[in-house]
Amino acid sequence: MPDTRDPQLLKGVLPLLVLRLLTTAESYGYELVTRLREAGLAQITTGTVYPVLGRLERDGLLASRLVASSSGPARKYYRPTDDGAAHLARAEAGWAELAAVVTRVTSGPPEPTSGAIDRIGAGTEDRRV
C-alpha cells in the first residue's frame, strides 16, 4: 500500500512525536526510529530522525547520556528535559486544537458563510440579466 502521507505534515509533527516517545521511555537513536516505525511511521529512516534529535538537544529540549552496551559501542540515550516537557505540553495542546479544526472541516458538509451566500445570490442575479 503506497504511503499517502505528506512529508511536510510529518516534518511539522515529528519533534512532537519524538518528545512524546522519549517521555514514555528514553531511547538511543536507532531504537527511537524502530519505535516510530512500530507506531505506524513505517517509512521513517534514521536520516530523518537524527537531525530532529540534534536540534532538540541543541535547543535544550533533550538531554543525553552515554550508556555502555554489551553488544557494541556505548549508546547515546535521549530523554526530555524540563523545558522539553513544557514544550511537549504546548505542542500537544496546539496539535489537539489544529486536529479538531481539521476534523471538523474535513468530516462534515461544507457550511457556506453568509458572505458566500451573498456571492451566490449576486451570481444568480447576474445570470438573469
Binding site: G47, Y50, P73, K76
Partner: peptide, 21 residues
Amino acid sequence: QVQEDTLAAAADVGMATAIDE
C-alpha cells in the same frame, strides 16, 4: 552525533544497513 548513533545502530542491524538508512 551521526557517528555515535550510526555505530550504535550498526550493532543492531549491521553497518551496511545503518549507513544505507
